[in-house]
Simulated assay, not measured.
Amino acid sequence: MFTGIIESLGLVRNIVKEGENLHISIECDFTSELKIDQSVAHNGVCLTAVDITDNIYTVTAIKETLDKTNLKHLKINDKINLERAMILGDRLDGHIVQGHVDQTAVCTEVIEEDGSWVFSFDYDSSLNNVTIEKGSITINGTSLTVVNSKKNSFSVAIIPYTYEHTNFHTFKNGSVVNLEFDVIGKYVARLLEK
């Protein structure tokens, strides 16, 4: 379980393909605190640390994960949003985030305003995921509030702190991002289908 409050930006240091899997090695400032088998959200994708060497740890993304996320697009030196699992009893500063990406979206517009940014995204609505105005959405693991909700698109407003401390400052038109829709909304949508 995660909160969607990004803890650190990691740097991708190595990518090794093995069969359908990718072994992704990441350098970050909390590597020394990790243990093998610990869960970390990577751009919102919950992955398990399988190796730790000095200040670099490695995770493995399997085909199912690669098919549904933007991790297949990672390159050496890319910045990646990181969050360790929530500690029971801690504040829930974002919203309930499972680390299970529902689908990807494409950034269609970045508007710089006076002191903030508005990012717009398109996604495939045929997968039955929905956003609602002022509802929660997780983009690359970052807990955000939806604005301008439409059937297959939405926007989010980003404050300077989030812009600087997540990989939002690397997004441009065409950037592919991971989406995790609000878990309560997903259950309601499923119930309405029945």
Rank of each mutant, 00 (worst) to 15 (best):
T108Y: 06
L34V: 08
F30C: 01
L82F: 05
T60V: 15
K72P: 10
H100Q: 07
V106C: 11
L88S: 12
K134Q: 14
F121T: 03
N140S: 14
S149M: 07
H42R: 04
D51C: 03
D124G: 05
G44Y: 14
I132E: 11
D51A: 13
L88W: 14
S125M: 10
T138A: 15
C107V: 15
S136A: 14
I52H: 00
G135D: 12
V50Y: 00
Q98D: 00
A105Q: 09
A105N: 11
I96T: 05
S143W: 05
N140K: 10
S155L: 04
L88K: 13
S126A: 11
Y161G: 00
I159Y: 11
K79T: 08
S32W: 00
N152H: 11
N77G: 00
H100L: 01
F121I: 06
D51R: 09
V59N: 13
I158M: 06
L47I: 04
D51Y: 00
S155F: 05
K63M: 09
R84E: 07
G89N: 14
D102R: 06
I139T: 12
S155D: 10
Y123E: 04
S136V: 12
T131L: 06
V106W: 02
S125D: 15
A61I: 12
T131G: 04
N148A: 13
N55L: 00
I96H: 01
N70R: 02
F119G: 00
S153D: 07
H42Q: 07
A157L: 02
A157R: 10
T108F: 04
N81M: 06
F154I: 11
T58A: 07
W117N: 08
Q38L: 07
K75W: 04
F30L: 00
I158L: 08
G99P: 03
H73T: 13
H73A: 07
K72H: 12
A105E: 11
D78P: 10
S149L: 08
K75V: 02
D37Y: 13
T138L: 07
L82N: 13
I111S: 10
V97R: 03
D124Q: 02
D122L: 04
L66G: 02
D78V: 02
D122C: 04
A41I: 09
S126H: 13
I52V: 06
V110G: 03
H42N: 10
G44W: 14
Y123I: 08
F154L: 12
L82Y: 09
H95A: 06
D122T: 10
I56F: 00
D29P: 03
I56M: 05
A85P: 04
S32G: 05
H42V: 09
S116I: 13
V118I: 15
D54K: 14
